[in-house]
Simulated scan of single mutants.
Amino acid sequence: MKHILILIISLLPAVALAGLPYEASLEEMAASADHILIGRITGVDMVDARGKPVTDKLARTGPGLDNTIRLRIGVDEVLVTNASQVPTVLPVPLANDLHYSLGQIQSAHKNDTRVFLVILKGNDFSGIKPGVFLRPISDKEKAMELYHASHP
Rank of each mutant, 00 (worst) to 15 (best):
P13F: 07
A14G: 09
A14K: 08
V15K: 07
L17W: 06
P21W: 06
Y22C: 12
E23C: 02
A24K: 03
E27K: 02
E28N: 09
E28S: 12
E28L: 03
E28Q: 14
M29S: 13
M29P: 00
A30M: 09
S32N: 15
A33F: 07
D34V: 13
D34L: 12
H35K: 13
I36K: 06
I36C: 04
G39S: 10
R40C: 02
R40E: 14
R40V: 02
T42H: 03
G43S: 10
G43L: 03
G43H: 05
V44D: 00
V44P: 01
D45K: 08
D45E: 13
M46G: 12
V47A: 11
V47S: 02
D48R: 12
D48M: 09
D48Y: 08
R50T: 15
R50C: 01
G51I: 07
K52P: 09
K52L: 13
V54C: 12
T55A: 15
D56H: 14
L58Y: 10
R60P: 01
R60M: 12
T61I: 09
G62F: 10
G62I: 13
G62K: 10
G62M: 11
G64D: 09
L65Y: 04
D66I: 13
N67F: 04
N67L: 07
I69K: 08
I69S: 01
I69P: 02
I69D: 07
R70W: 06
L71I: 10
L71G: 07
R72P: 03
I73C: 05
I73A: 02
I73M: 02
G74M: 11
V75A: 01
V75N: 01
V75E: 02
D76N: 11
V78L: 09
V78F: 04
T81M: 06
T81A: 03
N82A: 14
A83T: 15
S84C: 05
V86T: 14
V86Y: 08
V86S: 05
V86N: 01
P87E: 07
P87H: 10
V89H: 07
V89W: 01
L90S: 07
L90Y: 04
P91R: 04
P93F: 07
L94F: 00
N96C: 08
D97N: 09
L98D: 04
S101Y: 03
G103D: 09
Q104C: 08
Q104D: 14
I105V: 13
Q106L: 11
S107H: 12
A108N: 13
A108Y: 14
A108T: 08
H109D: 06
H109C: 00
K110L: 12
N111S: 15
N111M: 05
N111K: 10
N111R: 10
D112E: 10
D112I: 01
R114W: 13
V115Y: 00
F116K: 06
I119S: 10
I119W: 04
L120P: 00
L120Y: 06
K121W: 09
K121I: 14
G122D: 14
S126P: 11
G127Q: 00
I128S: 00
K129P: 00
P130S: 10
G131Q: 10
V132T: 09
L134I: 05
L134N: 05
R135C: 09
R135I: 10
R135T: 05
I137C: 08
I137S: 08
S138N: 11
S138Q: 11
S138C: 14
K140P: 00
K140C: 05
K140G: 02
E141C: 12
E141D: 15
E141G: 13
E141N: 13
K142F: 04
M144G: 08
